[in-house]
Design a binder for these strands. Structure first.
Lengths: 246, 246
DNA sequence: TCGCTCACTTGACCTGCATCAATGCCGGAG
DNA sequence: CTCCGGCATTGATGCAGGTCAAGTGAGCGA
């Protein structure tokens, strides 16, 4: 079930300049090389469970995972979408606060928890980068609260698509997206609904509505074409700074 | 409008062991003493505005403030409640991402931004504590997403009251609250509604409903008596770990 | 090729919360 | 004490999105 992944040199790593190791020099990188290991899991794998021990600190190298919590009556809320360079695990804590599930094939680069905690303590470049990434995550989580608390279903869907497009273009190093953008959805309708605080049905209906209004095209259920990124952004309630969400 | 506050020795500071300085030794504290200044503002003061420059890193010493964002059509969402020991400002960024408003008289202990960034860089105890606090804030923000995305109005109100009670008892060093608990609300109905993603009217109605069901008593609009903390927790959907929220 | 499964879509209906509109209440100024 | 203004409560009504239920269509194994 778990595929072994050949060890990759950090220099060749696709997230070399975005992950927690981004600011490391070659000497620090050598330490990481020794301690790291890769792991690849198929879609649907539960990587961590809320309240359960989590003995590794992992960084997503490729693929997509969700961070979620389920209430005992079955209501589920996804609180974060994990894409390449995002991390899983909380230094200083031995259990996971959330469920983490791979939604596509996911490869992570991971460290044994104690090892990583030592690295954070002894390597200022890592500690500083981790702080910076955590502050970004905090802003993203707070931005998402605005979406969940105050937006309509239509705005939620539009915001979700816009932010996915932003992240896709950011990870391929482009400037902000504009004009026509095409997008592959890593998430099922159900996972999107859980992320947006909606039901599957409402999610589906709003995607249909956006299509009928010409704001998106849907070559297949998992592929979205945005003819005008600017027009969709408006629908998302683009306001102040055009700041990133998700 | 802004009251000058006499400088307090860190040793006598009410948040000495909870704030970003918690892990500092006496030598580090001496550096902080030299760089810090206090400021006290009346209720209603805007401490920071989204998108505007924010040239200080501040820690709440006493009082309560809200962290919020307003959409251009007036919808507002409060994304965080700032209580003593919580910080305002983001190291490494010169503008505030959110509005910060004092909801009661607030006293902050603050540092000029560049000075604080230097302190973070050069003082591992501060950097580590800041990371730890930020990770806690991130968990709180994600927990709140579950409230906003998946809970009913009644559950939201109950959760809010329960988490306020938890924070009050935590700050006075007690174990978790139990039995009868009395609570002063720092927030108006409108501010509560903004925090919970509800309207004023729904907020008021649900508080009335909880009173009619005997789960709370309301000696005045701003004071809540919880006869049985356990019973209210159940109403809040207490599940897994009884983990803290807000 | 057939038919099964599973994800998605669509329809009909219902309900929880928003909206609109008074009314009540407390605290401060005169 | 009385008036006033802002906050809070309560009532009446509407609608966005949830719920329940029935298709639809693409992928896949037999």
């Amino acid at each position: 079930m778990v595929k072994l992944t050949p060890v990759t040199a950090c220099d060749a790593c696709p997230i070399r300049h975005n992950a927690v190791c981004a600011d490391c020099d070659s000497q620090e990188l050598a330490m990481l090389e020794k301690a790291k290991s890769y792991r690849t899991v198929p879609p649907g794998t539960q990587i961590a469970a809320a309240g359960q021990p989590l003995e590794h600190f992992s960084t997503i190298v490729t693929g997509c995972a969700t961070l979620s919590r389920t209430l005992e009556d079955g209501r589920r809320q996804t609180v974060g979408l994990l894409l390449p360079s995002d991390y899983i695990g909380r230094p200083g804590r031995a259990t996971s606060g959330y469920d983490v599930e791979a939604v596509s094939e996911v490869t992570v680069c991971r460290f044994e928890r104690r090892t990583f905690e030592r690295l954070v303590r002894d390597t200022p470049h890592i500690a500083a980068r981790l702080l910076s990434m955590t502050l970004d995550e905090l802003d993203a989580a707070r931005d998402w609260a605005v979406v969940l608390g105050r937006m309509t279903a239509r705005e939620k869907i539009a915001t979700f698509l816009v932010s996915l497009a932003r992240r896709a273009s950011a990870s391929s190093g482009e400037a902000g997206p504009s004009g026509a953008v095409s997008l592959h959805l890593p998430l099922s309708r159900e996972a999107i609904a859980d992320h947006l605080g909606l039901t599957i049905e409402t999610t589906s209906r709003q995607i249909t509505a956006l299509r009928k209004d010409g704001l998106i095209e849907t070559p297949s259920a998992r592929d979205i074409l945005i003819p005008s990124f600017e027009r969709l952004s408006l629908e998302a309630g683009e306001d102040d700074d055009g700041g990133p969400i998700v």
